[in-house]
Deep mutational scan, measured.
Amino acid sequence: MSRVPSPPPPAEMSSGPVAESWCYTQIKVVKFSYMWTINNFSFCREEMGEVIKSSTFSSGANDKLKWCLRVNPKGLDEESKDYLSLYLLLVSCPKSEVRAKFKFSILNAKGEETKAMESQRAYRFVQGKDWGFKKFIRRDFLLDEANGLLPDDKLTLFCEVSVVQDSVNISGQNTMNMVKVPECRLADELGGLWENSRFTDCCLCVAGQEFQAHKAILAARSPVFSAMFEHEMEESKKNRVEINDVEPEVFKEMMCFIYTGKAPNLDKMADDLLAAADKYALERLKVMCEDALCSNLSVENAAEILILADLHSADQLKTQAVDFINYHASDVLETSGWKSMVVSHPHLVAEAYRSLASAQCPFLGPPRKRLKQS
């Protein structure tokens, strides 16, 4: 649940008159999402009104509101027999009622949201009550392989729920002597030191190019640089560091992050930047690179990204790559990247197969709970 924001200063709310007192009302909304995959969808019983329910879910471990999704594969009634019906059901509720908006969509073979439908307002739910769409999607369109909505005969539904909580009022009075504290510009100011090479005390040599930097900042941000300058190493004695395995453009992006906490060109060089972040123990930059690479996972590059993640101990990226390969196994196994990995990294192939087997055979063990970014 997000923290209630402070109200904007009255002088910034309007260029008009300023009242002596004010009130700011925040209506709290808890948002969460749920993904439900139905394997072997074409084998569902086709009687009209037949119901399939998901397991229950909530916004978190401490949330007492429990929900589930309900599907009628062949419609709810005679009117909707040519459609799939989809509903959000409130299973248990400690209150007399709650209000919530919802959005349903289908994830296609690429994991993209399609055929989205959402409620136009927050509906009133009581325990045992459901709301949804009797005519969510035509069955003939859903079952047509050309539309790519049932890869490997799996129907994957994605649901986003927004639950309306209580409202909170914050009130106060205006004073004539309003003090406005300026925003912190530390990142910009440190970035200026790097860009202008002011007050530098060490030189970093990268592929024949020299960059002036500040030992204190490098040591504070990177345990690797800290070790170089702290001990009686040649880098500490000469205040000069030779860097041979990072390209200059990648190095500059890494230094921008060290000084400012930002990497504006990360998406263009996420793979190389991940390697640099791993070498210099820049954990936050490493996770930022993992996130960017996750966003660009595809059938063509899944094997290469899995190898990269394994090489640099990028655990979150590795998990996402394995899950992606499992979901698109029939396509990924035909790529040149996968065939190369079979020869060069057989242990990763074995890991992917083990994960695929456990996903398809849940009876082999208890269900695993899916539970950071600093």
Rank of each mutant, 00 (worst) to 15 (best):
Q212D: 15
R99A: 14
R45C: 03
A219H: 15
E210W: 13
N244I: 02
H231Q: 14
S55I: 06
D272G: 06
C93E: 10
V30Y: 12
Y87T: 13
I38H: 08
A213K: 14
A329L: 06
F136A: 08
C256G: 03
R185C: 08
S33K: 12
Y327I: 09
S313N: 05
L84E: 09
L282M: 09
L273K: 01
Q373R: 05
Q120P: 04
W22H: 12
G261H: 09
K74D: 10
Q360T: 12
K180M: 07
Q373Y: 11
N244A: 04
A275S: 04
A276T: 04
L142A: 12
V4T: 00
R221M: 12
L157M: 13
A220G: 08
K64P: 05
E118D: 10
E160T: 12
D291K: 09
K286C: 06
V342I: 11
L84V: 06
D315Y: 07
M178P: 01
E97T: 02
N177S: 02
E183A: 01
E189K: 03
D310W: 05
Y123N: 01
G75D: 00
F251S: 03
H231G: 13
A352T: 06
K81E: 10
S295W: 09
H231K: 12
M228S: 15
K64L: 07
A302K: 00
R3P: 09
A19G: 12
A216Q: 05
D271P: 09
R370I: 10
S15T: 13
N265K: 03
M1F: 00
L76Y: 14
K66C: 12
F363D: 14
S236W: 02
V51F: 04
V161I: 10
V126A: 09
S295E: 09
A227S: 09
I307G: 06
L155T: 07
W36R: 01
G75I: 11
D271W: 03
K180A: 05
D245Y: 04
Q209S: 12
L204T: 13
V163E: 03
M254V: 05
L190V: 07
S336Y: 08
K129A: 04
E12M: 05
G208M: 13
R370M: 15
H312P: 01
K101T: 14
A314S: 04
I52S: 05
R284H: 10
S374I: 11
L107N: 11
T319P: 02
A321H: 00
A11W: 04
S295A: 15
A219W: 13
S344A: 13
L193V: 02
C203M: 14
M1G: 00
Q212E: 09
S2Y: 07
K28V: 10
S336K: 15
K66P: 06
N169A: 03
E118L: 09
V349H: 15
